[in-house]
Design a binder for these strands. Structure first.
Lengths: 213, 213
DNA sequence: AAATTGATTAGAACGCGTTATAAAGAATTC
DNA sequence: GAATTCTTTATAACGCGTTCTAATCAATTT
């Protein structure tokens, strides 16, 4: 059993030696590394950027990276927040000023799919970097705060269906809608050689069917 | 410029030394290796099985593997055919004996999603092993013969919609349907912690909307 | 049998992610 | 300043995918 001197009973007395890293210090360093990592991963791909290289670009030793990140994949995970944040920030702008929820839903959906088509590398970063390992994959995008941003689609569908819609219907429709969008993005991005009808027709069809038009 | 003695003008005269491997020999060896690889990958995961290990299990040297496969990922790609073949063979059995195309479509769709839920490792194998590298990803499932098997959904939808349906509508609906199924599978498999409504409600909703019921 | 050509093997090597260990540096209390 | 505690560095090591080279083996023609 290792003793943790910091956690002495009472907690009033200061520890003796150098204090451990502040949560803020850790966050700053992680952000700093993630920033450099995002540039490098986007430019050269996740697999092509080595830990040793990233460390030297970030101005530290490989070993130091392992102080702040569990492993290389852990660095990648930090970037999901940035990418998804960027995506949904754009979608928020798309949706504003459109009173008709059905029209707004269509615009959001198109924006969502087209974002991934315009940022294919980011799609791979977010949706296709977990496989192979078979571990920690069920945690995919497991951050609740990130997940919550998908609610724009849900609330839009709820509004379009009106107050008379049953909540369970709204739920199922929302999940099918988001899954459908992800499936369309997956198809167009990963199977780019296939002669798809195109993003707009597919998204329009999905939106129209979900809303029952 | 290297000369290829085999391709001498005319092609009638035999080459002098040991003949190159027959297409059949290559196919046999690839099949043999792929068979062992499928077992190992399923049991221990793609990343955990090393080339050195696979070679020794297959009864050859690592170097020999590189004679028959371009790289480790190339071995994985051979397995997609097996997995997808297995999946669609089962679906064929599901669909038989059901005259109503709408009901048949629903059964096929449920079978499709549930197959991936029951074979999560295979889902990762097929859909999530390409990322990271950012190369050879656009070739994903690029085999035309494999891709053609997705036509079961298309023909089922065409039959359900009847002869009066416009071909373009059938095309768009089929693509949205398949994408929707893949999206549902992706969501349920990779985000297993999320409280989804479940595979059946989602698939039913998608099927009903696509068919316009 | 000799020569030739390709398949296979053996072994070293590279950079990779990751782990381990010991030394050096920094920040705090006594 | 001394002691202490944590961070960072330096360095070696492991197995990995992959490449390279030289040697050996196998199958064919002359």
């Amino acid at each position: 059993m290792k003793r943790t001197p910091k956690a002495k009973a009472g907690g009033a007395g200061r520890a003796r030696g150098r204090p451990a890293l502040t949560a803020g210090q850790v966050a700053d360093m992680r952000a700093h590394v993630a920033s450099r990592a995002l540039e490098l991963f986007r430019a050269e791909g996740y697999a092509s950027v080595s830990i040793r290289r990233l460390a030297s670009e970030a101005g530290c030793t490989p070993m130091t990276l392992y102080q702040y990140f569990e492993n290389k994949f852990d660095i990648l995970r930090m970037l999901w927040a940035d990418v998804l944040g960027d995506l949904f920030d754009r979608l928020d702008e798309v949706g504003v000023g459109e009173p008709d929820p059905a029209v707004r839903l269509g615009a959001l959906a198109e924006g969502y799919v087209e974002y991934w088509l315009e940022h294919r590398e980011d799609y791979f970063l977010v949706f296709m970097s977990g496989g192979v390992s078979q571990d920690d994959v069920s945690l995919f995008m497991g951050d609740a705060a990130l997940l919550a941003r998908f609610d724009v689609f849900r609330s839009c569908i709820a509004e379009a269906l009106g107050a008379r819609a049953r909540p369970e219907d709204v739920r199922v429709k929302s999940e099918v809608f988001v899954c459908g969008l992800n499936g369309i993005a997956q198809g167009l991005v990963t199977l780019s050689g296939y002669p798809w009808a195109g993003p707009r027709p597919l998204v329009r069809e999905l939106t129209a069917r979900i809303l029952g038009r």
